[in-house]
Design a protein around this nucleic acid. Sequence first.
DNA 1: TAGATTGTTAATCGATTAACAATC
DNA 2: TAGATTGTTAATCGATTAACAATC
Lengths: 219, 219
Amino acid sequence: MINNLPQKTVERLSLYRRALVSISDEKENIHSHRLAHMLKINPAHVRRDLMLIGFQGDIHKGYDIKELIDYIGKAIDCNYTQKVAFVGIGEIGRQVERHFELSGTKLKVAATFKLEEDRTRNVDGVKCYSVSKMVTVIKKENVEILVLAVPPKEAQKIADKAIAAGIKGILNFSSVYLKAPKNIYIDNFDIVATVEKLAYFTNKEFCKTEGDELKKETK
Amino acid sequence: MINNLPQKTVERLSLYRRALVSISDEKENIHSHRLAHMLKINPAHVRRDLMLIGFQGDIHKGYDIKELIDYIGKAIDCNYTQKVAFVGIGEIGRQVERHFELSGTKLKVAATFKLEEDRTRNVDGVKCYSVSKMVTVIKKENVEILVLAVPPKEAQKIADKAIAAGIKGILNFSSVYLKAPKNIYIDNFDIVATVEKLAYFTNKEFCKTEGDELKKETK
DNA sequence: TAGATTGTTAATCGATTAACAATC
DNA sequence: TAGATTGTTAATCGATTAACAATC
């Protein structure tokens, strides 16, 4: 584990790794601008981040994908498997609506949609439909903003439908880069990268002795 | 609506409003350092943000809470109620585990907990328990990281139990400032503030004509 | 008045990006 | 070689914070 990496760099390293794993069957090497393109960031960013973890590429072939995947693991992973738990994530929609009601904002949770549910339910005044009804409901209710948290495979398909139905902004939790027209505002929150960042910093705390001394010396 | 506010300012304005609403019954005015303290940020930040939306305080009394709540609404809200929908937020735990498995990280989703469920289920290899079993499971499985997305009232109580059981880091979706010992790493993601930011920028797009001209002139 | 707070500018800090020498 | 890419420094950009005159 490398101590004292910037927060944002740790997040990106997590994103690099996921992108690299997804293409590791097809390719052996990748250039900084290709990897940057996959994440929609600047190539200099990629090179700088890899510099920080001390990973070197080949001037012609670029970076060795398998080696880089391992190297990122060495840089940010703990030396044992850390466990994660989720508490009550399903309740988020209703909570947010409650906040909206309290804070006097001009926002309203008009509906929630579930992937595996067929019947329509009404929970605390917020209707919960099957996703198959999404287009109809968006149009009928003029829903403008979508909070999207579905499996990667479904994400783009559902986003496309929602945009066609009139959605203007998406808060995207689905860890997939969504293609969308420029006038659609998209805010990506990558929960996987965030948890990995969290894990890194809890580890760092764990290896405090080394890390803190290094920090002080650098300053 | 005020155009060209920085993203972070819009997010904080949403947080200010929520904090102000929560105390508007008890107090009439608030000083910048009190409001800053509620959000754990710098007082200069508060004053600067309010300056950007042109809100003026009294040099002795501070800011009028009710007026400020209205003023924030005028600055960031749309002139009609925008609707929001949620798709499949309940699936997040399992998705994240799938990503972990694929990307070769040293992380594992050990359990998910639900507030309203009593029986233990097993979905795609991830066990889903009642929250009442949380402490036991965290200890038994040595869970280190918790993704917490429960209603505000429960959040602190559940966090306390989890920390006592050995949790080291929390990704907090519950829009509540969690009190915790310094060695617990906490990452807050405020979904309410994020959706309000999103709404602001979709509105801005909507009022493009004015906004873009202003932008160009400023540059 | 003395003391405290606002409004605002300037300084600082960190993150992003441009640029380019070194390299093959 | 000519051309392309890396590794790294310097410049830029934006966000945060310190500082302080103005005010009551």
